Amino acid sequence: MPAAFSAALALATAGCSGNQPPRTPPAMVPAGDPVNCVQTSQIRSTQVQDDQTIDFTMRNGQVFRNTLPNRCPGLGFSRAFSYSTSTSQLCSVDIITVIEQGGGPRRGASCGLGQFVPAKPADAPK
């Protein structure tokens, strides 16, 4: 893999039409120790839950919940973000940028990530 690997990801949920009510992230419980980085090539999808919570689903089905250290304005409304990294990993020291919808996509707030916590639904069998 080249040293100057650059990844960008912009994800939006279908039907992102504006007046979405705020939602509470689904209850998840830790399923292992937090990690600082995940391999970008292993990220299958992301689900923005609110202004501070993103669930990363990996190719093997494992979910990592990332709770940002601070609220990221517009993230929960737009449910879309991008990132750029010079390595093959996305880490807790990296920054995401909200992609605002309406009148064409444009850059919104930039916010730092937190640690990636392996998680499973709270009601999942043990």
Rank of each mutant, 00 (worst) to 15 (best):
A3I: 04
A3L: 10
F5S: 15
S6R: 15
A8F: 13
A8S: 15
A8Q: 14
A8C: 14
L9C: 15
A10I: 11
A10Y: 07
A12W: 11
T13W: 14
G15W: 14
G15Q: 14
C16K: 14
P21R: 06
T24D: 12
T24A: 14
P25Q: 00
P26S: 04
M28H: 07
P30R: 08
G32P: 05
D33E: 14
V35H: 04
C37M: 09
V38C: 01
V38P: 01
T40V: 15
S41F: 11
R44A: 15
Q47Y: 11
Q49V: 01
D50E: 03
Q52F: 00
T53F: 05
I54Q: 01
M58K: 08
G61L: 07
F64T: 02
R65A: 00
T67G: 05
L68E: 04
L68Y: 01
L68A: 13
P69K: 07
N70A: 11
C72V: 00
G76I: 06
F77N: 12
F77W: 02
S78V: 00
R79H: 06
S82R: 13
S84L: 07
T85K: 04
T85N: 06
T85F: 05
S86C: 05
S88T: 12
D94W: 02
I95L: 06
I96M: 04
T97P: 06
T97I: 01
G102N: 08
G103Y: 01
P105I: 10
P105T: 13
P105V: 12
R106L: 05
R107F: 10
R107S: 13
C111T: 06
G112E: 08
L113I: 00
G114P: 00
Q115E: 10
F116E: 02
V117S: 01
K120M: 05
D123M: 05
D123E: 11
A124Q: 13
P125Y: 12
K126I: 11
